[in-house]
């Protein structure tokens, strides 16, 4: 990996802002453009920038395959859990109004939408990072 202090410093500064923007896109998805998928992809793009700037082994040491697998499972579990919770409460799949009516908490559907978007974002981010690791990596520790 080529030593370049400009690239490293700029990426070290840019990565937190990209991740904050990704979280903004995820949370803002209910009321405007964006959503869980786009936010997750932007979050994964910050990891791609880290891979380009610092090299694959440095990033690989901080993010292991087991953590990525668990993140993707947790994301899907949040999404499907809220969806099937609506089924249990007597509504359709992902029908937030049914949960809100059953629990009696006002404005619960907004929180539920944000939770579902966060689950989608986590799952998409983990899947994208896993794909990048498998394709751009040298094939080591591909378990």
């Amino acid at each position: 990996m080529m030593e370049n202090v400009v690239i490293r410093t700029v990426s070290r500064l840019a990565v937190p802002f990209i991740q904050i923007f990704a979280l903004y896109v995820i949370v803002h998805g209910a009321s405007g453009a964006g959503g869980g998928f786009q936010g997750g992809v932007v979050f994964a793009a910050s990891f791609i920038l880290m891979i380009i700037a610092f090299g694959m082994p440095n990033v690989r040491r901080r993010i292991d395959n087991r953590g990525i697998m668990w993140l993707s499972v947790i994301g899907i579990a949040i999404y499907a859990g809220i969806g099937f919770l609506a089924l249990l409460m007597g509504g359709n799949f992902l029908e937030y109004a049914a949960i809100e009516a059953a629990l009696g908490i006002p404005h619960l559907h907004g929180i539920l939408i944000d939770l579902v978007e966060a689950g989608i974002g986590i799952a998409v981010m983990a899947a994208m990072v896993s794909i990048i690791f498998d394709i751009a990596g040298n094939g080591e520790e591909s378990s």
Partner: peptide, 26 residues
């Protein structure tokens, strides 16, 4: 179609380019 534009920008111009370049490098 702002949502579609956002997806096209992130996935089309961002992720797939990196994936293709990584695939070409291999």
């Amino acid at each position: 179609a702002v949502d579609v534009a956002f997806t096209e920008a992130t996935v089309g111009a961002g992720i797939t380019t990196v994936l293709f370049i990584a695939a070409i490098a291999r």
